[in-house]
Design a binder for these strands. Structure first.
Lengths: 227, 227, 227, 227
DNA sequence: CATGAATGAGTATTCATTCAT
DNA sequence: AATGAATGAATACTCATTCAT
């Protein structure tokens, strides 16, 4: 399951070994230097294979990255679903999925940054983050986090916000924090993760009590001032 | 500082001189394709100038981008501080700053994505997002959002989370949503903005009432259980 | 006569002033960096004029250099003839001309190196050093040094060597030494100059005494060894 | 050191591998046009290789030229020492070394001019011609020609002139003549070479007989006359 | 006349891709 | 299958030359 543990033996009898080496090298380097900042020759060197060899496994550089993204993204999604129980309470399901993102990012920093790089590139403009949780085999059914939100709204435990906003409130802070963590700006201990997850829940949960507070809105989108 | 004397020339497209044309083209293209994905020749074409002309205004490509970033980032920060009153309530100040990010992103999509690209590039690894709100002239004092958080924690209206986490909870969702908005995935009306801002506040505010709920933590970072 | 002494006044009323400034700058820079290593812009800056101005005085860069060479070379030749008396003894005439080269090189290092640069460039391949002493207005008559050599051979005071060889023996050492002097590798005092000139004369003079010595010539041009 | 294994391949032009082709082309073109006057593309074309290929063998243009110079200069020096016997008479040793320069220049015109170009370029300003005869492996001991001069002066067969002057008198004419020869201005037969070498010896040898003649020196370097 | 901003052809260098071994 | 030498198109940058002011 862990991609990095493939180093079984020094001999190259392992089927697909080279392919894996190439994939690892690509993820690592592109996560750091980006698509255009990572020459094929660098990938070949990091992978310990000849440059020409890469073209035996992938048609060209674009295909290489696209295929790797598909695979990594799929792994990522499946990781999230591991231990997921659709019958749990809304909040538990929410926390489960979001914690999964946290953990995945911390444990797979290269893959995490690779995915981010991809979404920030022209490639990722069409595909969008909303599809982050699309099913791998693509059965077409609604995605887990969306299901949670929909169910939560039906039960009136989650705010009546557009889906995109809910996703942003849930995922935005996590991506942000994981990046900082990978950059070494913060050491994410379990307490911080838990508290942050709880805070994310606070952001989206429908509050019932009297401490709701309206937002003052000085109509700032339009440039004309009110008298 | 401006090479051209900005005299309003008879021709009409002349608005802002070649330097401005180059800057605009650079922001637009790099915001979409990134630094390495944007050749100088492409910038020249988009700006409608000769490639050599760019080098009359900027020493090299690096300088071009760095100078533009400095300027754009400065504009951005000053926009945020416009109308900001440090004597207002914590929540109001928080909402003011965060709304500013929203509005800036919506009104200046290229600049917004350009800043994002920059922070995600090797350039931006040292500079970090935490410094997003640093002062332009750099008086050295604590940054506005950090001040709000510090003051809020002192007043016990903001959660006791690490600064990085608070920033993530505040800014993460906004960046995420603005990107989706720029990508055309969501139409951000004022209600959505306001509600999202309120939700961000919910994420960081210290709750006092009885509806606090602990997070179940299945100790997922380390494999060994704590007794 | 000295080109460098044109700095009469700071005001630019001096007719032809700009032209002279350009010529000075060109000689200085090309003597140091060579033709391809000296951009027009650098010449303009050194001369303190606009780049476009150079094209008011010279058609293009090639013409600029060619014209300057012609002028400098002419000045050089005329300098050599200053005080020259065709009625003096062969040796005196020889020494006079050769000393002139020495002095010219030491007093006009930029011009000297400029001429050298020119001869080492593709330009100078057609023109050749044999024409170093050609007449300025080109009256077609034999050149001074050649006349000296011819007269000397007629009087049997100069060796029966090809003209090119005599010129090489006379001028080669001087050029070599002046270059070293300009490079700061040797301080040329008058004694050294005089002694070197005397040595040059020794090289070409027809020896009459018994201390003539044949050269052992192991036929080295062809690769086959003698048995 | 040689990338290619120099195996004699079936094709015929393959002599010397791409690296050699590049080196030859570089020497030929730079000897004619100089460093700045010789684009990489021209070298590639002359060598019959792709421009990119050059960079497989040399880091950049500077390295290309520097490496070639080192090699050519080393070859040159070793050629001079071939058959050299430090126990011979001063004059014989002198003639041997100087003849070597002659022959090398005639047989390797491109290499000869390449070396000249190099010494006349900004590169060669630090390295100087005086080091022309430095040892390849650089044992640090005095250079052959200098040794000859020193020994000759000790034996009072060579004039008491500064070393630089002696070198100039010895080498200057040869370089001059070889250049003319390469330019096709003179056909150097063995007699001319031998006689020129003898003349060079005449220039530096300490004369003992009565035909020494003082030089009239009209104090030309400084304007003030000595009393 | 003088200028220097503007330009595009030209230069050094890199890199995705191919192909002979 | 695997390699990496070879390539040329593409990229950043320079510079001779022009021309509007």
């Amino acid at each position: 399951m862990n991609i990095h543990s493939t180093k079984t033996s020094p001999t190259q009898t392992e089927t697909g070994s080279k392919r894996e080496l190439i994939i690892h090298a690509t993820i690592k380097l592109i996560s750091e230097y980006g698509f255009h900042g990572t020459p094929i020759s660098m990938i070949a060197q990091e992978a310990g294979v000849g440059a020409g060899t890469i073209y035996r496994y992938f048609k060209d550089k674009d295909t290489l990255v696209l295929e790797i993204f598909t695979q990594v993204n799929c792994d990522f999604k499946q990781t999230l679903l591991h231990g997921y129980d659709a019958n749990q309470a809304i909040r538990d399901r929410f926390i489960h999925l979001c914690r999964g993102i946290f953990l995945y990012g911390i444990q797979n920093p290269y893959e995490f940054k690779f995915i981010e790089q991809f979404y920030n590139s022209p490639y990722g403009t069409s595909l969008r983050r909303e599809k982050l949780f699309c099913n791998c085999g693509d059965t077409g059914q609604a995605l887990p986090l969306e299901q949670v939100f929909a169910a939560g709204q039906a039960q009136q435990v989650i705010k009546e916000l557009p889906l995109a906003a809910l996703i942003a409130l849930a995922i935005g802070p996590i991506i942000f924090l994981v990046k900082d963590s990978i950059a070494g700006l913060i050491q994410l201990d379990e307490a911080t993760i838990n508290n942050t997850l709880a805070a994310c829940w606070d952001a989206i949960q429908q509050k019932t009590g009297p401490n709701r507070q309206p937002v003052v809105t000085p109509s700032s989108l339009s440039s004309e001032e009110k008298p």
